[in-house]
Every structure is written in C-alpha cells, then in structure tokens.
Design a protein around this nucleic acid. Structure first.
Length: 221
DNA sequence: TCTGTCAACGTGCCCC
DNA sequence: GGGGCACGTTGACAGA
C-alpha cells in the first residue's frame, strides 16, 4: 500500500500514515485515530489572519475546522502549525504538513482521462508507470482512479434515473390511455349500445352496422 | 459570501 | 492478514 504525502511530517502526530489501510494498521497497533488526523489540517489550525486566536473566546463564530484546530492546539501545544503562505508551493511531491488541495495540470488530467478510457482500473505496474510519467505518487493515481470511478458511477446513476423517470412517465400515459379505452369499450358492450350516450357516439363495427341498417329502413319507410 | 468541484481521506467489505 | 475497491465525508479552492 502506498503512503500518502505525509510520511515526512515531523510533527510526530501523523506517524507517516495516510490511507485507509494505514488506518487498519493503526487500529491494529491500538493507536488512537485523532493524532493521526491532526497532521492533515494543520494549515488552518491557526489561520494566517489569526482568526482562530481571535475567536477563541467566542466559539459560536468558530468554523468546524477551526474549533478542531483549537482543540488540537490545546492537545498538542508543541506542534508548530504551518500556514498557507509557508506552504504555497503546490509541488505534487512535497510533503507539507497541511492538506493542500492538489490541482492536476491540464496535461496530467488529459493523460489520466485517456488512460481511464482505456481501462478504468490499473494494475500496480500500470499505476507505477503512470505515476512516473505524471510525476505523481502512485497513491495519487490510485485516489484519482477511485474518485473517477465514483464520478462515472454517479453520472451513470443520474442517466439511469432520468431514463427510468421517462419510462415511468410513458407507462403512466399508456396506463391512462388504456383506462380510457376500457371505459369506452364498456359503453359499447351491448349489441345496440343501450348505454350509449349522445355525446359518445363511438361504437363497435357490429353496432355501427346495425344502426346503419336501422337508419336505412327508417329512411326507406 | 455562497456554492460546486474534486483530491484526499477513513471505514467497511470482499477476495486471495 | 493484507491489498484493492466502493462509499461517504472532509476541506481547499475557484468561480459566480
């Protein structure tokens, strides 16, 4: 299993672990999860503007992450938290303490997309090869493919939903139409259509024929 | 300021 | 038992 970009974290909190199975290992080692998570969010522990410090006495104004930050700050006072300005380098291979948002370049995205079109899952060799080619970590490739599959599935679900909705609508229309037709057929169930109302002159061909004959006789008389 | 997007994550499940 | 994946969530970031 690949490690996430935190293996060089020197806070002493994240233990160089990151992915899902890292958590498994973590559990097995009977270590608590909280310190593990602490590493990821260091960038906003104390914002560059010092907001967290300012709102320290007014928790109603503290955002979720910031409140967590304060708790961590209290729990781990010796940790030096990095800021955005310090971690502005968006290098894919750096191992910032913060969980920085990686933006893939257009070229990287294109190659990943093209690869995904060919095969939506990768074996370890393909993964490593792609990682080398794009100057990314294999873990990043893995994550990208997982997210991409999820997006594909979501999109397909939406498409399926729309199709089903349309199909359902068609069935409803058809059902309505058939009900109406049944109603009309019931009106002409007797040979001379006694229940027939003037507003509903429709009748079966047999009735129609008899009625025609009757009219003919009357006219002749 | 709000909202949508998406990389990265934690967890549970399955398979070998 | 470990690796891979699906799924749900988090949080940074960009654009309206």
């Amino acid at each position: 299993m690949e490690e996430s970009g935190h293996e060089e974290c020197n806070t002493g909190l994240c233990l160089g672990l990151g992915g899902g199975h890292v958590a498994k290992k973590e559990k097995k080692q009977k270590l608590v999860n909280k310190p593990l998570m602490a590493c990821f969010d260091l960038a906003f522990e104390i914002s560059p503007k010092g907001e967290a410090m300012n709102i320290y006495n007014n928790h109603s104004n503290i955002k979720k992450g910031e409140r967590l930050s304060l708790e961590r700050q209290q729990n781990y006072p010796n940790v030096t938290y990095s800021t955005d300005s310090e971690n502005n380098n968006n290098n894919n291979n750096n191992n910032n303490d913060s969980r920085k948002k990686l933006r893939l370049t257009k070229e990287q995205s294109t190659i990943l997309e093209n690869t995904f079109k060919l095969h939506n899952t990768l074996n370890p060799v393909q993964k490593q090869s792609l990682a080398d080619q794009l100057n990314l970590k294999t873990r990043q490739i893995e994550v990208w493919f997982q997210n991409r599959r999820a997006r594909t599935k979501l999109k397909q679900t939406e498409v399926d939903y729309e199709l089903l909705k349309k199909h359902c609508q068609n069935l409803s229309d058809e059902n309505r139409r058939l009900k109406k037709e049944l109603q009309e057929l019931k009106l002409v169930q007797s040979p001379l259509c006694p229940q027939r109302t003037p507003s509903k002159p429709k009748m079966c061909s047999s009735c129609d024929h008899k009625l025609f004959k009757l009219n003919e006789l009357e006219n002749n008389n």
